[in-house]
Structures are given as C-alpha cells and as structure tokens.
C-alpha cells in the first residue's frame, strides 16, 4: 500500500526508469522547486500560450530531426490560428495513432481557439511553440532550447502557459 494507492495509476508504470535505462543520462531529476508565478489578471483577460514537445509543425517547415543521435534542440512556431489540416507531426517517440485522426488529442489547437472565442481566456499568443521530446543532453536542453522558448513566450506577451510533454 503506497501513499498513491487511491489515485489513478499511469498506464505505463516506471516510465522514468525505462527511459533512463534506454537513454542513459537523458532524464531530468530536480530536487528543488521553482517559486510560483501568479496571474496578474483574471484568466478571462489573460493571453494564453501553448508549448508542446509533440513535434507538431506547420506543413512545409523544416522537419524535426527525429534520427539525430544527440537530439534536435530547435523549435518551431505554430501560428495559433492554424487549422489541424495545415499541421503535421514529425516525432516517433509516442503513439501518434490518435493524433493522426484528431490532432487535438495531443495538440488541442481547436479547443484552445474555442476557449478564446468563448472568453474563457482573454486570447492566445500569435504563435504556439513546438519541439520534439528527444534530447540526450538535458543540461544543453535547459541551457538552450528551454531558455529560447521561455524568451519567445515572454516576447509574445503571454500571461499564462499550458504545456504538454508528449
């Protein structure tokens, strides 16, 4: 009996250990917490951004390098007014069977557009941000890609960020 016995279990138990075995040194472990930032305005007035590691990108942009042994440390901007038909997935590290039928299961761009129209959020940043979740050098990831996306999120004057580690 564990402390979590009453909570729903994840479908693939021990994922951290599995990935760390398969890709030694790739997994991040932190022992400190980042102080919470707080919304400066009601959610209904806040500009929301979305950051995804699902490898979703506008059709015709340079595909993510899913075969590079060290990983791809680049990101793509995905206009938040895109339609799913204008987007494609370049990533092989998660099951894309659902996403290929309805992209919203991993990149819920239409649901986010609806929330903005309904006024649940004040609006969306002009772009969302996309990368692939495969980097063998987590220190480089934190030093480069994480900071670059964080700066891009600030530059688009986001008030809040929803993230989805695919």
């Amino acid at each position: 009996m564990t402390a979590h016995s009453n909570e729903a279990q994840q479908m693939r138990p021990g994922l951290w250990e599995t990935i760390n075995e398969r890709y030694p040194g790739s997994m991040i472990t932190k022992d400190d917490l980042v102080p919470l930032a707080h919304l400066s305005k009601p959610l209904s007035e806040a500009r929301l951004t979305f950051v995804s590691s699902a490898g979703v990108q506008p059709r015709g942009t340079m595909p993510f390098d899913v075969a590079h042994p060290i990983g791809d440390y680049s990101f793509r901007r995905v206009p938040s007014n895109s339609s799913p038909a204008g987007l494609e997935i370049h990533q092989i590290k998660y099951p894309t069977n659902g996403a290929h039928r309805d992209l919203n299961v991993i990149f819920p761009i239409e649901r986010l557009q609806e929330l903005a129209v309904a006024g649940v959020v004040g609006g969306l940043t002009p772009n969302f941000f996309s990368f692939i979740g495969y980097q063998m050098d987590p220190a480089r990831f934190e030093r480069t890609l994480a900071e670059e996306i964080a700066e891009a999120v600030v530059a688009e004057r986001a008030d809040a960020a929803l993230l989805c580690p695919a």
């Binding site: 472990t29 960020a161 580690p165």
Partner: peptide, 30 residues
C-alpha cells in the same frame, strides 16, 4: 522547460500521463 517559463514570471501548468517522470522534474504545476 516549464520551470524556465515560470522563472520568467509567467504561471505555467502541464498535462502529464507519466506521474513518475513529472515527480522527477518537479514542474511548478501539473
């Protein structure tokens, strides 16, 4: 990634299907 954005003063939340991975990375909210 999430921690970097939160440090810029922007509140963040992530959706996870791997509770153990999230417990390791300690994002501000998930």
């Amino acid at each position: 990634m999430q921690r970097a954005i939160e440090r810029k003063g922007i509140p963040t939340v992530s959706i996870t299907v791997a509770r153990d991975v999230t417990q390791h990375c300690q994002p501000p909210r998930a």
